[in-house]
Amino acid sequence: MKKMSLKKLAIAAATAASLSVTAPSYADGMKVAIIAPSASNDLAFTQSIVDAVNTLKDEYKLEVAITDGTFIVDDAAAAIRSYAKEGYDVVIAHGSQYGGSLKEIAPDFPDTAFTWGTSADTFGLPNVSAYEAKSNQGGYVMGAMAGAMTKSNVIGVVGPIEVGDAKLYVDGFVDGAKANNADAQVNVNYIGSFGDVALSAEAGKAHIANGADVMSGTAQMVVGAVGAARSADVAWFGTQANQTKLGKKIVVASQVYKWEVVLRTIFDNAKAGKLGGDQHEITLENGGLVIEFNDKYPLDPAARAAGDAAIAGIIDGSIKLSH
């Protein structure tokens, strides 16, 4: 009997807790949680979302919680679930490898807005939105400039695993380079890892040894390849975050992700009671993708012109990208 009542109490308490979740009062701001695979200050993928949320912090009176460095997918899943349980209004699962878990978790928390990326898949769930970066756009712009800059006609690209955002960027880069310089040979090396800095450095050196005089690459292990470019004085194009810090003399430009463009929509939707079901993307056109140049780099005007032309062409639609 006593046991029974205890159980009832527990249930009552649980319902009370979940009730308080269902009635969020956004007037006092929102609670936002980020789950991301690498460090918050990785100058790459994770930093892009953390910076974006911090940009909106005051405007939306956000209370932000971050669980970073969660490369173990099931740990990320546990974090997603516990944030939802704790009543966070928006849970951002920042990693395409988290989708499988989110698909299973989101239906258990119909009153929480989940958003994840980079992806376009909302699993048909009303409380899941997806965001992605049209990183092939910036990739194309960078490629166009690289094609115009190269003297050896060899360009090197270092990628992690051929998936998602990395694949998109690299594909765009290759297309841009080819479009601006038909003779250019673009060597792409996916090293098979998001974390192996030493291998990424040696891949960079292999490109340089093969004559590459312009390089690019994507994902967090790319710092190794930038180091190789730095010691050989080879030009570098960055993506995901402004990578000028990694090589003040060699970084030409970076494609920077301004996720705040889509996060605004997602937060506004959440306030209005629309928790998901939609896809968002950042593009050159909507200002979510910005090409930030390194002022210190003596960029050849012709290359700069090729880049500007590519930006303009993508925005006005005269350049069609394959994805």
Partner: peptide, 12 residues
């Protein structure tokens, strides 16, 4: 027993 009920790799 994972949340995602699938096998995923990050390369490591």
């Amino acid at each position: 027993g994972s949340e995602s009920h699938r096998m995923v790799t990050d390369g490591s």
